[in-house]
Design a protein around this nucleic acid. Structure first.
Lengths: 344, 344
DNA sequence: CTGAAAGCGCTTACAG
DNA sequence: CTGAAAGCGCTTACAG
């Protein structure tokens, strides 16, 4: 066992020959302290390499500058981009971020909310699609409700929530519909779609928006045209491979995320098919890497870092009306070279 | 102002009609408590949605399950991959990770170490290349030394440190040398190198290893063959563009990181040059995306998630000998299609 | 096995 | 402006 001997405020006060209260005030600037005393305190703190104990401060009532962020997977490029925005705003506000990866296990998410609650985080951010699962929603609310009741702030990105929490909502449905229109405009009539689990609200919104817009134009998606796979690069690769094995007859493949589209692109290349000459491919998100692909990917661009920034700002900002604030973020179709015009 | 009323252990004890001590022991299992009392406590805690105050626990002496991780930028694919490993091990050990992005500002790094020290994090991980800057080293040590003296654990990835801290060290120099040999074997004799700031130890190791190995083979790099730029995709793009503007006469371009290589690839494509037919390109790191590029990138593969896992394990594991433990991780040259054979 | 009490390291009314 | 003291919410010897 290591002797965990820390320098305390009391050590500083003694060295500076002042009271605890004066040392505290000098260090925090919370109340005026005469110049020469302040200097003595600061010098003592410096010499002793004093660092206040954040736990003691938090316990004694000072506000704790810590926010919790829960995501599915830090190493996913989508989240990495959103996290960039979160970290920027957090850093600018002197907040420390506690980050947790759930690896898409709902129980982990609930466990982390509980830990963050225990840490008395000033705010909790939930990033990424939730599940349409009433049991899970209920268990999550059981953690979130008392947290909110205790004055905690919660903001979510990409989640429909019955709860009254502030939300940043990408317009998934509208974005996917706009993409459908763009692809129809290019002349495509036969589509295939690569989706993740339909239990994820993001997936069902994007898929639904795409499918409904096609339907309006009289284009139907048959069940065989839709392949569901994990929400990852390898999922996209697997889904595309399956489609190819069945004999692809679409002229255009829409993947509900760029990450899946990247896997699809690799599957097509390995299969000897050329994009966009043999088949067009489109994605959703506009993660940074997709413009460096060959061909660069057509996609629905979401302002990823801003999603994180807005969420952080909502969480950091007082909510006077106490009503749920919703910040919608539109996606924009960006046509790059992975899609081409065809004659219908 | 919000009334931050939390349910406390005292509330639970009262509801269960036991003493504070018994409630604490029942909840933590730190000492035997008779069955019927324990059940009463657990039920009361459940009903009141009680969450222990982590600050009070930490202050009262319980160990705090929190680790701090400091990196340059969460949204960099290199770090995202390393972070994946860190989060996995942290999650398996029930630790909460506090993550900070320095955006390559040395002062921020020092400020974050100080914050993590205040948080009494059980361990601090420093991920990513340090600078060769004595002032900064000294200021950092001034924070780290008292932390270590207080029983804190520190582990670093990709850093040379004079300090006695556990380290995970990718073999940058050897990896770059191996890459040089592979490229020489392919017949290349005229090289260009895209580097980041030479003040970063990672850069100087990789660049040095590459250059020295070429020299052994009698191949010299002229100053004009080396372009320094920011350690990012855009830096690689800019460096490559500059090289092209000057009239590229190399048959092979080595970028000291994959991220820079990606930018270089895009610059080449926009310039109408084909890789590898017109020029070969190689990188370093093997971030996940590079195998999905067209052409897939030749690179020195580092086991990125393992770098994070090892660092976390070092930090979580008692160090009996109290000596600096160094975990070296070899890189492996992976030849993909971005490089081709040429006749010298 | 159980409880009363001290103590962790701060902050902040409350007097002066 | 300064200090003595209470209190934040726990854990853990110390008695019993």
């Amino acid at each position: 066992m290591q002797a965990r001997t820390h320098v305390t405020l009391e050590d500083v006060a003694r060295a500076a020959e002042v009271s605890l209260a004066t040392a505290s005030r000098a260090l925090n600037g919370t109340a005026p302290v005469r110049q020469h005393l302040r200097e003595r305190v600061l010098r003592a703190a410096e010499e002793l390499a004093y660092t206040p104990n954040a736990h003691a401060r938090a316990l004694a009532g000072a506000t704790h500058r810590t926010v919790g962020v829960i995501c599915h997977d830090v190493s996913d490029p989508y989240f990495a981009a959103v996290a960039g925005g979160i970290m920027r705003v957090a850093g600018d506000n002197g907040m420390l971020v506690m980050l947790a990866s759930t690896f898409r296990e709902p129980e982990r998410e609930i466990a982390y909310v509980s830990m963050l609650r225990a840490e008395r985080a000033a705010a909790i951010l939930l990033i990424g699609s939730g599940f349409e699962d009433p049991d899970w929603e209920r268990a999550l609310d059981a953690e979130l409700d008392p947290y909110l009741a205790g004055g905690g702030r919660v903001a979510v990105v990409s989640r429909h929530r019955s709860l009254k929490v502030d939300s940043v909502l990408p317009e998934n449905r509208a974005g996917a519909a706009a993409m459908a229109r763009s692809l129809l405009d290019l002349g495509h009539r036969r589509f295939a779609v690569l989706t993740g689990s339909q239990a994820l609200t993001t997936v069902s919104d994007r898929f639904g928006g795409f499918r409904d817009e096609l339907k309006k134009a009289g284009v139907r998606l048959r069940p065989a045209d839709v392949v569901e796979a994990p929400f990852t690069r390898d999922g996209g690769y697997a889904a595309m491979s399956e489609l190819l094995a069945r004999g692809l007859d679409a002229t255009c493949v829409f993947a509900v995320t760029d990450v899946m589209a990247i896997g699809a692109l690799s599957a097509l290349r390995e299969h000897g098919l050329s994009v966009p000459d043999d088949v067009s491919v489109a994605g959703f998100d506009d993660i940074p890497i997709v413009r460096d692909l060959t061909p660069p990917l057509t996609t629905v661009a979401l302002p990823l870092p801003q999603l994180g920034e807005r969420a952080m700002e909502l969480a950091l900002t007082e909510n006077p009306g106490r009503r749920r604030r919703i910040h919608r973020m539109a996606g924009e179709v960006v046509i790059r070279s992975s899609t081409r015009k065809v004659s219908p």
